[in-house]
Structures are given as structure tokens and as C-alpha cells.
Design a protein around this nucleic acid. Structure first.
Lengths: 233, 233, 233, 233
DNA sequence: CATGAATGAGCGTTCATTCAT
DNA sequence: GATGAATGAACGCTCATTCAT
């Protein structure tokens, strides 16, 4: 790769000028439509938007999936980076976390294909993009932890999953009631703060038995009597 | 059913001996594939799975959408009901909420079509199923509120959205790392508890400026000095 | 057939009461929809309209075509009869012919399936209905011929074909411009009158060479001497 | 074609070498089956006949209707043009009319879809094909009128309707008894000639009262409600 | 290498006909 | 005999992918 010189004498001469431009056009167009319509888009529409023939598209990306993966990786990276930028600009560790989510969610919600894909590739270590994101979050996590503002036991994966989780809330409400997901974000982040002392569950055991957790309050279950005996059927 | 004897006096006996069975087969098969593959399934596959011809399927459900709606309504109702049951069996108001989420998420995550639909019909008051669920949550909300365990300002819609949001987290992790979403649920629920005093944001304003949360501290205290407002305990 | 008595002792007892009524319902309903929608109609709609099950319909008429033929024969007969009635009520032979067409066309145009069928069975001697109609026309033809009002050489088949031909004109214009087909009928009937002396062509030879008549003669119109140059004026 | 030499200098050479051929194959095949079976044909059969895949057919004609319209327009135009040619080759105005009908009917009768379409678009000024035809007829009409051979009051629409009307007669007899429609054409055309003096009816009034216009005028019963005798059924 | 025409499996849906009740 | 549920071939149409130019 570094020694391109040797290749200049081979038959591969100039064709790359257009090819590269075409490839970029395709990716750009694909990014747009994938964000808008998800992976169910017609490949033809991507070709049309990018101004190349369908044949050219298939030369660069032999399968639709190849194109989708390429684009998602790029978009994912860009997205992760913009969120990272938002985070490092904050001086306060907690604000960094908050800003990160704010920025990430705004972008995430607007990219339908990333959402679809996140669910699928969630645990796939091959999906390089996820790893990038994990790194960013890891840093945020470490920083917040060091500052003592993060609830003990919260892991990078928790934060990653929370991001994914909130993403769908954003998507569902961003158009109609954009303030709603902000409320939810606030709620969730508050659950992440250090004040809480109870350790998080570390395995699959149900949290319900702990849940009520409030010994002092004793859930004497004041109200709801009527419903109690209610017809279970 | 128990009193089959009455049957002999009824007039319309057999008209549906197998028709009913077929209809149920179809619904059952559809429920499976819709849960697994979402609404994009081929109706022929449902017919094949249920052991009937495509014509029979269309006799019972003239449009694919009819079948999908029927199945989704049933599954949605069953799901909401099972979650409600889990909730009313808990004596403590908080445990009710927790158990409700626990139960609901387990089921929700396994039904792809319900998830798709939830996102689409999120705010659609016509979707009867959603209304059922909202009622259940409303009661939980009221009960927890009355017991003083719910953070002031939390609405039914917040809880509904949280459910939807967590659903995707569950879907993403249920197979590979089932304990993960339990952690996230715990985190989110903790954010809903009453100790937190700051009001939730009520409009679209970014929460990032509040970041650290604590109104008293404002943003000036980046890193949680003395543990802020002191632990809830 | 004639000796039904012998059959009364066989096992065929009463079932005919309903069966006959059903058969008639089916035929009546079929007549309606065939007239309105043609033979492309869905058999189910006929069953629905007649109030019987699709199975019953198929018991009486094992193939859709059986039902169609039966109905068409009946409707065809009724139609021919009503036209015949219109004809015999006229005292004048020419008026009989005119009234016949008038009546027949009105009915013909309103029965889509008969029109479709007429084209198909035009030359089919098996189609009994056609024969009925031919008889009627034959009588009209003979009568007009005897009265000397019919152009020599005009055959029953000519009149039958004219009827069929005009039928489509009626269908095309009855809704939008009902007077138009009356004009056309008038034109055609005028062509049938006795004044014209030239013999009709009797084989497939093109009429064009004769038609306008001889180029040499120009429009001087070979026949109709007396009237010849005499323009209509 | 003769000057292929020019080809070498053109830029867009091949883009349609076979595409054009395919398109023509499709149109040709469609023309055949539409003529034979009408618009109810299966598009797959057209594809099969033309030797292309169904996808190719749909590439050229995104909707079945597009194909049908294209073919009908072409066939209609060709048909009208051939009839026009036949007409202008005749020196005599009346022969022009006759030859026009002769030619037009020969073609018309062989094209089922055109017949279906004619009936539907009869009065539709949007159907370009009809307008072409109307123009041709208008000229024939004017010419014959000027020569004094056309019965006064005959309109372009009369001639158009007559064409349509006779078309069905031709279709019904062309196979079995091809000379028959020639007789009918002769009869009808004779009805159009100038000698006849009575004006054509101009509204929906029944012509029966005027009937042959016979001096003797038997049919004193003028109105006799259309359905005289009513439906015997 | 770019192009877009060609391909055909597959989808949602209809309807004449059969068959168990 | 009456019923209507069951059946599946066929239809109009889409779209990922291949291939000749």
C-alpha cells in the first residue's frame, strides 16, 4: 500500500478518478436514504440519487448488504465522533455524559438504518463501529467514575445499552412530542448518579424482589384496594 | 363449555368445527412469525405453518393487514394483561411497578411485530391495545404516586415511553446477555423514585444545561462535591 | 317425463320444493348481475344475491358456464318474445319491423352478457335462443317482403346481424347520447327499404367497387333513376 | 438504415440494440394477444410470447395499462391511417366513404381490444386515437356532403358510430361468413345516401312512429311505451 | 470500468371449483 | 340437498441481482 510506486507500472492506471468519485456518490446517497427509509430501500433509488447506474453500484458493492455495512460503518463512526466532540467540550464529567447522550440521541434517532442495525449488531464484535462507540463511552465512564458522580457498578455496556434503548424512544417521539424523550433521558441519567447506593444486579436474577427496596416505607399498599380483588380474568 | 348438554338444543352446531380450528391455527402461526420476523412476513409462510391453503387464510382475513391487526391486538392484550397480573400481585406499590416492567419487557422483547407496531401507533388513540396498556400504567402510576414513591411530575406517558424504550434494549440483549437489561431497568426505575426532587423538564429544552441536575448546584459544581444534596437515605 | 306418476313412488319425494325455489333465485340473481356486469362477474356475488350458498349454486349448475348458458337462454327468449310482441302489435309491416328493432335494441343494450354472448354464439346452431329470434325475424321479413316494402334480397340473417350490430351502438350511446342510436337505426332501416333496386352483394366481394358506384357515373347514382339528380332538397 | 455509415460518428450507439428489439417484440406480442383476447390477457403471456422475462416487460411498461394504452394507440393509429389511405385513393367522394369503411372494418374487426376500447372511450375526447379517426371521418363527411351524395343531417358522429356498430357485425361474421357484413355495410351506406328526404330524428324520440315514413302510415300508435308488453319474465 | 436492460423468484390478492359437515 | 370452508392456480406487480454492450 505504501509503495504505490510499483503499481504505477501495472495496468491499473487512472480509472480510479471516476471510480472513487462514484463510490463516494453512492455512499453519500445511500447514507441519506438509509437514514430516511432504513435498509428496506430499493437499491435503485440509491443508484438514482447518486447519479450512477445500478451496474456501477453493484460493481462497487456486490451485495446490497455490502453497501449497507459500509455506509453504516461510516455513519456510525461519524455519529460516534460527533457525540464524542460534544462530550469533550464539556468541562464537567457529568455534563460530558449528558451532552454525549444529548448529541448522540439527536443523531441516532434520525438514522433509521443505524437503529435497525444497532439492534442486530449489538453484540457483534466484528462490527467495528460499535467498538469505536464503546471506546468513547468507556472514557466518559471512567471520567465520571473518577469524579465520583457515577453510580458504582455502572459499566460501559450499561451506558451503551441505555443509548440504544433511548434511541428508540427518541425515534418514537421526536416528531410528535420532542420534549418527551428529554424527560426520559433525564430520568435515566438520574438513575445513573452516584447517590444511589444499592448495587446494581449483576446477573439475570429478577430485580423485582429488590425493587420495592424500600423497607422503611413498607408498601402497605394504601390505595388500589378495589383493583386488588379485581377480576383477574 | 362445561355444559355441553345445551348443545343438543342449539341449532348452529357444526358450521365451524374445523373452521374455528383453522382460524386459530392461522392466528397462532401468524403470532409466531410476526413475533419472529415482524410484519414483513410472507402470508404464504403463515398459511404453510398453519397447515391451510392461502385461500383459507384469505377467507378468514381478507387483507394481510386484517390478520396482522387481529394478531397484534390479541398478543398485545395478552401481553398487557400478563403484565397487569404481575403488577397486582405485588403488595407494594413500587414492587408493582417493578414487576410490571419485568413482566412486560420479557414478553414485549419477544414480539417483533408488537415492537414495530408500538413505534408506529405510539400516539395513535385509535389503537385500542395501547389504550389498554395506558390504563394499566395509569393505575400503577396513581398508586405509586399516592404512596409517595414516585418522583413528582412523572406521567403515564413517561412510563409508557420508558417501557417502549427498554423494550428495544431487551430485544437486543435477551438472547446474548439477558441480565443486562435488568440492570438497565433498575437504573431507569431508580431514576423514577421519589427522592429526586428536581422537576423534570417539561418542554423541548435540552437537559444538557442542567446536566448535573441539581438546581442548587447549578452547573458550577462539576464534580459532585460533597455528594450534593446528600444521599436519599 | 310425461309419466311423472311413476316417479312419485320412487325416492324422489319432496326436496324439490326448496330446490326449485333455489334454482329460480339463482337464475334471477344471475340474470341481474350478468346483465349489469357481464360474464366476468364473480360467482359468489350471484350466490350472495340469490340468498343461497355457493355450494347450492354449484349443485344446480356444476360449472359457471352452465349457469350462464341457462340464464342467457332464458333472458334471450324473454327478450326475443318482448320484441316479437312489439312487432305483432303493429299493423303495418314496416312499422312491425321498426318497432321490433326499437324494442329489441332497448333490451339488448341493457344486457351486457347477452351482448357478449351474441357475438360468440352468433353462428352456433346449438344456441337455441338464437333460433327463436331468427324465427321472429323471419316472419317479419316475410311479411315485409310480401308487402313489398323490403328491399329485394334482404335475408333473415341480414336483419339478425343488423340487430346485433346496432346493439353495440346502443350500448355505447344509451347512457350518454341516447338519441344517437335512434338516428343510426333510422339510417340503417332506410337502407332496407324497397326503393333501392340494386341487388345486395351475395358473396364476399368487396362492395367498394360497386359502392359509390362506378367512378364513371360519379355520384349520379346508378339506380333510383327518377330521383336521381333530384337532390333531397 | 441504408446509411449506416453515419452510425460511426454518432455517440449513443448501442444503448438499445436489443432493448429496442425487445420493446418492439413486446408491443408486437401484446398487439396480437390484445387483438385476440382483449385486455383481460395475462401479462405473463405477453412476456412469454415476446420472448422476454416479466421483469423486462415491466421495465418497458411499468403498468399493464401503460402497455395496453401504448399498443392500442399504435394499432388504432395504424388502423385509422390505413383506412384514411384507402379513402384518399378513391376519386369519387362516395367511393371514398365506402372504401374507408371497407378498410376500417377489416382491421377493426380483428382487434378485440380496440373494440373494447372504442366502446369505453367512445365519447372521451382525451383518447387521442379517437380524435384522429374523427378527423378522417369529418373530411370524408365534408367531401361527400359537398358532392351532394350524403343525406342531409348526417354527422361525423353518426358515421363514427356506424363504424363502431358495424365493427361488431364484422367480428361476429368475419370468420364464418365474411360476405355477410359486406351486405350489411351496403345496406347501411345506402341509408346514408342523399336520395332519402326525410330528416333524421334529432332527439331521443322513437323513430318507430315515423317508421318507414310510409305514406300509408299504418302505425298510428306512435308512442307505445318502449317496453311494450313489459318483461314477460 | 460504466451502464442499464434483462431476469425471475416472490409478494399480496382473487376466484372458480371441490369437499366435509 | 344445502352449506360455506378449503383449495390453489393465476394475476398484477416489485426488486435484488446478473450480464451484454
Amino acid at each position: 500500500m505504501a509503495v504505490d510506486g510499483s503499481k504505477t507500472t501495472t495496468r491499473r492506471r487512472a480509472p480510479r478518478a471516476d471510480a472513487v468519485r462514484n463510490r463516494e456518490s453512492i455512499i453519500e446517497a445511500a447514507s441519506q436514504v438509509l437514514a430516511e427509509q432504513g435498509t428496506a430501500v430499493d437499491v435503485r433509488e440509491i443508484a438514482r440519487l447518486s447519479g450512477v447506474g445500478i451496474g456501477t453500484l453493484y460493481r462497487h458493492f456486490p451485495k446490497k448488504e455490502d453497501l449497507v455495512c459500509t455506509v453504516l460503518y461510516l455513519d456510525f463512526s461519524r455519529w460516534a465522533e460527533s457525540a464524542r466532540q460534544a462530550a469533550i467540550e464539556a468541562e464537567d464529567p457529568w455534563a460530558a455524559l449528558t451532552d454525549f447522550y444529548q448529541q448522540a440521541l439527536s443523531g441516532y434517532a434520525r438514522h433509521r438504518a443505524i437503529m435497525e442495525n444497532f439492534a442486530l449488531t449489538w453484540a457483534d464484535p466484528d462490527m467495528e463501529g460499535i467498538q469505536q462507540l464503546r471506546l468513547v463511552i468507556e472514557q466518559l465512564c471512567t471520567r465520571a467514575d473518577a469524579a465520583g458522580v457515577l453510580r458504582p457498578g455502572v459499566t460501559t455496556d450499561d451506558l451503551l445499552l441505555l443509548l440504544h434503548s433511548l434511541g428508540h424512544a427518541v425515534r418514537s417521539t421526536d416528531q410528535s412530542r420532542p420534549h418527551m424523550w428529554n424527560r426520559l433521558l433525564r430520568i435515566s441519567l438520574d438513575g445513573l448518579r452516584a447517590y444511589r447506593c444499592e448495587p446494581l444486579p449483576t446477573d439475570a436474577s429478577s430485580i423485582s424482589t429488590v425493587a420495592g427496596g424500600m423497607p422503611t416505607e413498607g408498601m402497605s399498599a394504601p390505595e388500589h384496594p378495589g383493583r386488588a380483588g379485581g377480576p383477574p380474568g
